[in-house]
Design a protein around this nucleic acid. Structure first.
Lengths: 220, 220
DNA sequence: CGACCTGTTGATTCTGCTCAATCAACGTGG
DNA sequence: CCACGTTGATTGAGCAGAATCAACAGGTCG
């Protein structure tokens, strides 16, 4: 169920806001042909496992989940991507993951303007992705449920540059499948952190971090 | 405790044996200056977390573990590397991991001959590493102990191109820290697979796979 | 030989999962 | 407007799988 809608932004995120935050991005954008932003509604598939992979994707606004399924239906979300981030790297010409819009996302497809030297600008982004994945290995392999949750909240707070108030565009099951937990456990841990006065939960989709230090202590 | 010993190989692995197995490697080697092979004895540190990162490392023989530690001492091994594989990619100029020889390994340092176009040959290797890490996320996040072990044995068998007999140069604690288990659990699972006639354990450092299908069924 | 290290096995504990009930928010149709 | 169904989140009770604690066996090296 692939839904493409051309959707033009008054102010593209990439060259300005996102460019400042991710210096590697500007170099890549300088080497790509201009492209319109496609709007993917909630839960729309951006690409599927097994499809041909040819280009990269830039998140203009909204959020995206990247995941894989086991044959018996278990899901592992390997990454979330927010505005200004690039995804879609593959080692061969095929996608090995699903990419879906979480909450309605605007995606710009990046096509190289010239084949030459494109690797120079892609490599830093791929390495950043590798570092993130390796960090997440530590979380999945060696942290307990509370530590996982703390690491997740701190990561989001850092990427959103928010001093305390963190948006959670994804639902509890997404968080669970990212952290290798069940959604019930996610709910329980949030409850525990709330009771410990470490966070507030003003709404289902927002967390306010009251005590950064406590979270940092947890995940180390 | 960094131990460097110059150690010359009669027949370098890279241009021949490993070159055939990893086509991406030849391109990279063509762009690097010749270098001697350094021998790292058992458990010798190749580089440490926090050190400056400047070049890449090629395994000529032996095996290497890449890992990180939490502040309270828990260890997550993010990858093992064998002959013909390249490691040491970093997103910035600092190592975020430890690299250690497992069993006595010969390592060739790869220094670019010219700065130009080096990204073209590094990118495929970095993407391969990214794919591996993402696959491992699924294993750590969503598989139980038996499934983890099965996936590990199949991965090793595939990389060693062995039809059944798999070498385990690392000890049980290494396997555990790679799979997010304890070494006792690793031992028990191997026992279980042995009792089920899926594997034989001719020696502590060797596994013979008797029933590939059973292992494949397990990890899906 | 004894000390040490690695691996195996057993007994017990506990974290997080499974199953299940309940609640709140939202949309639809009468 | 309200009754109804649906979906997501929360909470509880009981259970299972892996961790922890502990004992012991085999091999190696001084």
């Amino acid at each position: 169920m692939l839904i493409h809608t051309n959707f033009r932004l008054a102010t593209p995120v990439a060259p300005n806001g996102a460019g400042a935050k991710h210096p590697e991005l500007s170099a890549l954008l300088a080497q790509t042909r201009p492209a319109a932003v496609t709007y993917y509604p909630e839960n729309a598939i951006i690409y599927a496992q097994g499809e041909a992979a040819s280009h990269l994707y830039l998140v203009e606004f909204g959020a995206v989940r990247i995941y894989r399924l086991t044959s018996d239906g278990r899901r592992q979300i390997s990454a979330f991507h927010f505005a200004g981030e690039v995804f879609g790297f593959e080692a061969d010409s095929e996608h090995h993951f699903y990419a879906e819009s979480i909450d309605g996302a605007g995606i710009r497809i990046l096509r190289p303007a010239s084949g030459d030297g494109i690797a120079d600008s892609v490599l830093p982004l791929a390495l950043r992705g590798l570092t993130r994945a390796q960090q997440h290995l530590l979380v999945l392999g060696r942290q307990n449920a509370s530590e996982k949750m703390a690491a997740f909240l701190l990561d989001l707070a850092d990427r959103q540059e928010a001093d305390g108030l963190v948006d959670l565009p994804m639902q509890r099951a997404d968080i669970a499948d990212y952290l290798g937990l069940t959604f019930e456990t996610v709910s329980r841990i949030l409850r525990k952190l709330k009771d410990a006065r470490i966070i507030k939960v003003p709404s289902v989709k927002q967390i306010e971090i009251l005590n950064f230090t406590a979270l940092e202590d947890l995940c180390e």
